[in-house]
């Protein structure tokens, strides 16, 4: 039982760090540019398809992962320059409508190129199979790799934002975009970079999660919704908040699905109540967080 429990905790963390990759871009784009981007899930899908196509044709998983990052970043730059850039000053309804249209375009476009059947990414042989962790826990090596990748990306992102000149310019732009422009910084280049960065992370997460599941049209939207829950919990605009929120949501979702049905059998004799409750759990968590901290865990009060 405890071994199983620890395994579920690791699964929760794994889900959490992958959610973080999605949520980081979403929260940056919202925090820095004030943009609600519903098409973020499409970039996740673009990454997954690019990885599946490249991995299938080259036989290399690693090249597939690189392709996911590149393809999503390129798609991100394109839609930022063609569409998104026109939306920064607009109200959120315009943004939601326009980026929803982008979802439809991406989904139909992908269906035209790849068809409606799911694609599959194979876990590379070097990462297949279980690994024995201290304490005798057998855990899939690939999932453990995802946790490590996610944490490395989170740390790299932290360094980028807080230690590099570019990151400091992004923070300054978040606070006062007119002022940073008046000091000679090209804010539109900065915005394109932030958008491409978020897109690349979404694409990476699409490829990695797509390997555990399947690669298909529409895969991005459920993740997008969960990622929104994450950034609301973490505090919109905060990268740290996104990480904390993502891990919390990952754990809540995984442990809820693991514990509640069996608890419900003990209490009511059937798993149904527990299953229903567990699918609602992250929203309950969000409501509770908002009740006590309306700005989210790491958000700044406005």
């Amino acid at each position: 039982m405890t071994l199983l429990f620890i395994e579920q905790i690791l699964n929760g963390v794994q889900l959490g760090v992958m959610l973080f990759l999605m949520a980081a871009g979403l929260t940056l784009v919202f925090g820095v540019m004030g943009l609600i981007n519903l098409a973020h899930g499409s970039l996740y899908m673009v990454g997954a398809f690019a990885a599946a196509a490249v991995a299938a044709s080259t036989g290399s998983f690693l090249l597939g992962v690189v392709a996911s990052i590149v393809a999503a970043a390129v798609a991100g730059v394109l839609i930022e320059m063609l569409v998104i850039r026109r939306l920064y000053g607009r109200d959120h309804l315009d943004q939601v409508l326009a980026t929803f249209a982008l979802i439809l375009i991406f989904s139909e476009g992908t269906r035209m190129v790849f068809g409606s059947f799911p694609l599959y990414l194979q876990i590379p042989p070097a990462l297949a199979g279980p690994i024995t962790l201290p304490g005798g826990i057998e855990y899939p090596l690939f999932r453990l790799t995802l946790i490590v990748i996610g944490l490395i990306v989170a740390f790299a992102l932290y360094l980028l934002i807080t230690k590099t000149r570019l990151g400091i310019q992004i923070q300054a732009g978040e606070e006062d975009r007119e002022m940073i422009s008046a000091l000679g910084i090209d804010i539109s280049k900065l915005y394109t970079f932030v958008f491409a960065l978020g897109a690349a992370l979404a694409g990476l997460s699409g490829a990695l999660v797509g390997t555990l599941q399947s690669v298909e049209v529409g895969m991005g939207e459920p993740v997008l919704i969960t990622a929104f829950v994450v950034i609301v919990i973490g505090g919109i605009g905060s990268i740290q908040g996104a990480l904390i929120g993502a891990i919390l949501v990952g754990l809540t979702q995984t442990l809820g699905a693991f514990l509640l049905p069996s608890l419900s059998i003990t209490l009511f004799g059937s798993p149904d109540t527990g299953q229903v409750l567990s699918s609602m759990l992250i929203y309950i968590l969000m409501a509770l967080v908002l009740l006590f901290r309306p700005q989210g865990l790491m958000g700044v009060k406005t």
């Binding site: 000149r165 400091i168 923070q171 300054a172 002022m179 940073i180 008046a182 000679g184 910084i185």
Partner: peptide
């Protein structure tokens, strides 16, 4: 040097000076 100063409040002094 604008009216109202408009420093970047969340950045340090050194970051404010070097940002641009």
């Amino acid at each position: 040097v604008p009216e109202g100063r408009r420093c970047f409040n969340n950045l340090t002094v050194q970051q404010n000076l070097t940002v641009a």
